[in-house]
Simulated assay, not measured.
Amino acid sequence: MTDRSEVFPDLPAAQNFAGGADTDLVVVTGLSGGGRSTVARALENVDFYVVDNLPQALMLDMAQLAYQAGGATQRTAMVLDVRSRAFSTDLAGAIRALKERGFHPRVVFVDADDDVLVRRFESVRRSHPLQGDGRLADGIAAERKLLEEARELADVIIDTSHLNVNQLRRRVEELFSSEDARRLRITVLSFGFKYGLPVDADFVCDARFLPNPYWVPELREHTGQEESVSSYVLSQEGADDFVGTYAHLIGATAAGFEREGKRYLTVAVGCTGGKHRSVALSEELAARLRDSRLSAYASHRDLGRE
């Protein structure tokens, strides 16, 4: 067996890296067809050094090399897929090893509904890496079971079922911009209940108690990002209390989440179709959180689907 010192002659085999916290490490994993490649490209756009298809057994070595090299590798992302797991399936152990050496990796898990994954594989006429002689659905089910523990470890789960490539890229870039990585990053996500609940939501807020601009002819074709719709929604009885209450709740709990090591918080605001009320309220809530010196931005999952 080859000794690690022969492969990495300058790398101490059992060194604890007290300064490892200064190395911004991101581990990207998730379901095949979920969008890992898009996530990797987006991370490159915000100045991460991205290592694709890295075997899990080499994660610690890569982190130590990134720490020692400094410079451009101080922000390093490691992307793991089925081929990576051919070397080891103990992602939890690899993450623990990183933490024991002083690193603080952030784990990103990309997910999507089974029917969406099937359509994506069929559109490019590819088989699933784990389907063997079975059906696409069999491969997806096998991989989903294999990744159960990895999903539980994730700091952030991104459901790409309703995101196009550009929307996913923007979401990742907003989450992993060069702003202090230790701060809690809050995504206020608008959505339409008729398209399903966001699987990555920490809080779900229901805005359907407000009058729907859809039934106002001059507002129907506009969105909550436009002044006419936003003013209409925010002027309704209860709208200001709704935003203020959630802004207070999130502001009161943000410091606690940070102390517990949570770095991403998703607040989902839903209305019927995700076009008017939820969009306007999400923009307003994100703005108020920023006014409170929290790192927050609005994202709109279902805008444009109608």
Rank of each mutant, 00 (worst) to 15 (best):
A142V: 13
Y232K: 05
G139L: 01
A268P: 04
P9L: 08
G132R: 14
A66C: 07
E258R: 11
G224P: 05
F242W: 10
M59L: 15
L91E: 01
V110M: 09
G274R: 04
G274S: 10
S235E: 11
A268V: 03
L25F: 12
E306M: 09
T23N: 04
E148P: 00
E179S: 12
D200P: 00
F87I: 06
F103T: 02
L80K: 03
A137L: 13
G192S: 03
K275I: 12
R263A: 06
G20P: 08
T272C: 00
D22V: 06
T253V: 12
G256E: 15
R96Q: 14
L197M: 12
E226C: 09
E148K: 13
Q64G: 02
W215G: 06
P217R: 12
A63F: 09
A286D: 02
Y195D: 08
D47F: 04
R144S: 12
F8C: 07
R301F: 13
L294A: 06
Q236C: 11
S161D: 02
V28A: 09
R263E: 06
L11G: 03
N164I: 11
D180I: 05
M59A: 10
H300K: 04
S84E: 09
A255G: 13
V156T: 08
V26W: 01
Y49C: 03
R171D: 04
G192C: 06
S231I: 01
S278H: 04
V39K: 05
F191C: 04
D22L: 13
A86Y: 01
S231M: 02
P12S: 10
H300W: 12
G19T: 05
G244L: 05
A154M: 06
D133S: 14
P217F: 06
S278R: 01
R185E: 03
R126E: 12
S127L: 08
S299G: 02
F48R: 05
R151T: 03
V199K: 02
R106I: 10
A66I: 09
Y297P: 01
R83W: 11
R83Y: 13
L175S: 09
G70H: 09
V124A: 08
E227W: 00
D302L: 10
V229I: 11
Q68P: 00
F48D: 07
P55S: 05
